[in-house]
């Protein structure tokens, strides 16, 4: 397994989830906005589109944001120069 594989999977899953939920809430129209609670134990793709879309940031932010994952993929996976330190 490559040094950045975990980051690649996390980045791909979370951003694909966000795009899919974005598309879902768009085609669901106003009725998609009226589901105010996700079904119990329904996970990240519950069909409550508006809530699923908002919830998708729970994947792109925690556990290392998408930006952090891209840095890891660049530095450890592709061997690009290390990001400049702020200090």
């Amino acid at each position: 397994m490559g040094p950045a594989d975990a980051s690649i999977v996390k980045l791909y899953y979370s951003e694909l989830l966000q795009r899919t939920m974005d598309f879902g809430v768009e085609i669901a129209g106003p009725p998609g906005q009226t589901v105010l609670q996700k079904p119990a134990s329904s996970g990240w793709e519950s069909g409550a589109w508006a809530l699923d879309f908002i919830g998708s940031w729970e994947w792109t932010i925690p556990g290392g944001t998408s930006e952090i994952q891209r840095t890891i993929i660049g530095e450890r996976g592709l061997g690009l120069p290390r990001e400049q330190r702020g200090d």
């Binding site: 809430v25 768009e26 085609i27 669901a28 129209g29 106003p30 998609g32 906005q33 508006a50 879309f53 908002i54």
Partner: peptide, 14 residues
């Protein structure tokens, strides 16, 4: 939430 709602009101972008 407001932006997502506005997008679907009065006709979707599509």
């Amino acid at each position: 939430k407001r932006a997502t709602l506005n997008r679907s009101l009065f006709g979707s972008p599509a």
